[in-house]
Design a protein around this nucleic acid. Structure first.
Length: 469
DNA sequence: TCAACTCGCACCTTTGAACAGG
DNA sequence: ACCTGTTCAAAGGTGCGAGTTG
């Protein structure tokens, strides 16, 4: 398997020809991203993380929280998250383990979650950890709230994108980097399958505190109609495990605060975990560790992971469109280019990006000189008023962004990004979901391939099509 | 028949408005 | 008038279990 670092050696620097000022002009190579609460994630990962998806949308737990360094303090960045399938299979839970249950269902409308602080200067992203707490997952393909749509009983992993851009319009010409963490992979479910996951969630999620105390649970159950004997037995099984099996004090957390301060107690907990690990079994077996995950350079032990991924110039208008997904759709799975980069197809797909980057026609992609892009920190911003063709980059569908007069697009943010999104002077507050307001310039047939849900139009294509990676 | 899904419930945390005191 | 701390209710996040669906 090619490690991300291997790929990095090939792709970390865009072709010099495409970068005015030479290959080192952007100093992008130093960006580091680390996952917060890696131990918590690992504890879930070892069992086989499951994430509930519901029609109204469900938060992730653990939620994604990252630390970033190496950004240019005065340059603006946009942070994005999307979910990519780990493989092309659908799964079922069968007797304490996950089994393949057939081919994956067709990809649901792919959405990208935009961090509500975006865009913000590098200093902002680096001064504290960045949380994606409000990101929600749904199985409702008609969702109009901008939640990330997933299929149940499929495996996904989150990807984090850092885009150096003053605003969403600039994304197209911006350098961006993608990071992912193997331990954040999960199976989407509508109800928990693995009781160990349920227990871990209850133990660590403050909102589930009410289910922690066995006595309380007993009372709760007593207040309900008697369950069927089978389910009672299942529950009893769960409770007995809770008491006599693994109740690793090292993992037990009574609240967010408890595990958020866990970095400080890592050394102690590490020892305890080594013991616990042996008690656990992985419902994914070795396949989970070696087969499908994005390769990372995760250092063993408590050191934070630092995953490198390729850097990409968002391609030029002509060469980039969402349809590239179809162009390369013959790949075994959308994620194969990411996670199975050891396969021939994965490598091929990855390499296929290069021409896109290298052939950016300068006249079509008026990439500002480095000074404008932030290489000169706090330098002049991206020239305003320059007519730009945004087609193909932003699969735009206007959606309510949580605040009146603020637009969102296929990138979902629960808040506004007023600084820059405001330039898309949007519909009034009463418009929810807002009508599609893209100027004609931005909605050429080649790009505008959303499909309609009422008066909302969601593109079915990801901002970053899987095969691009 | 059964796995997957939906829905309503009780319990809990979080959030923000209202208020009091310095 | 302003700031800080406290209280309290509403909103929203949880998993559970029964019912529904395909």
């Amino acid at each position: 398997m090619h490690s991300i670092r291997d790929m990095k050696s090939n792709f970390s620097s865009p072709p010099a020809s495409s970068l005015p000022g030479g290959p080192d002009a952007y100093h992008q190579g130093n960006i580091r991203m680390t996952l917060e609460d890696p131990e918590l994630w690992k504890s879930f990962h070892e069992i086989g993380t499951e994430m509930i998806i519901t029609k109204p949308g469900r938060r992730m737990f653990p939620h994604c929280k990252i630390n970033i360094s190496g950004l240019i303090p005065c340059s603006k960045y946009i942070l994005l998250v999307d979910m990519v399938p780990v493989d092309g299979s659908r799964y079922k839970w069968n007797k304490e383990k996950w089994e393949v249950a057939g081919k994956a269902e067709p990809q649901p409308p792919c959405r990208t979650y935009l961090h509500p602080d975006s865009p913000a200067p590098g200093s902002h992203w680096m001064k504290q950890s960045v949380s994606f707490l409000k990101l929600k997952l749904t199985n409702n393909t008609l969702d109009q709230h901008g939640h990330i749509i997933l299929h149940s009983m499929h495996r996904y992993h989150p990807r984090f994108h850092i885009v150096q851009a003053d605003d969403l319009y600039s994304v197209r010409w911006s350098v961006f980097r993608t990071f992912s963490f193997p331990e954040t992979a999960f199976t989407s479910v509508t109800a928990y399958q693995n009781t160990k996951i349920t227990k871990l969630k209850i133990d660590h999620n403050p909102f589930a505190k009410g289910f922690r105390d066995v006595e309380t649970n007993t009372k709760r159950r007593a207040n309900r109609n008697p369950a069927c004997p089978e389910k009672k037995a299942k529950k009893q099984d769960y409770l007995s495990r809770e008491t006599d099996e693994d109740n690793p004090s090292g993992f037990r957390r009574s609240s967010y605060e408890a595990y958020e301060g866990e970095q400080a107690e890592l050394p102690k907990r590490k020892e305890e975990e080594d013991v616990v690990k042996e008690e656990r079994f992985s419902p994914w077996g070795s396949e989970r560790e070696h087969g499908h995950h994005i390769q990372t350079d995760s250092s063993p032990g408590p050191e934070p992971r630092d995953i490198y991924n390729a850097e990409q110039l968002v391609p030029a208008p002509a060469s980039y469109q969402p349809f590239r997904f179809h162009e390369y759709g013959k790949s075994p799975s959308p994620s194969s280019s990411v996670s199975s980069s050891n396969t021939g197809s994965g490598a091929a797909i990855f390499e296929s990006r290069v021409p896109d980057v290298a052939t950016v026609p300068e006249h079509e992609a008026p990439k500002p000189p480095p000074h404008d892009m932030g290489i000169s920190p706090c330098g002049p911003q991206h020239p305003a008023g320059l007519h730009q063709d945004y087609t193909g980059v932003i699969n735009m569908a206007m959606a309510q962004a949580g605040k009146p007069g603020v637009l969102s697009h296929h990138i979902y943010t629960p808040y506004s990004a007023e600084q820059t999104l405001g330039q898309w002077s949007g519909p009034g507050p009463a418009q929810y979901p807002p009508a599609h307001h893209l100027p004609n310039d931005y909605s050429t047939p080649a790009v505008h391939h959303g499909y309609h849900h009422g008066n909302v139009e969601w593109s079915q294509y990801p901002l970053f099509s899987y095969s691009c990676w």
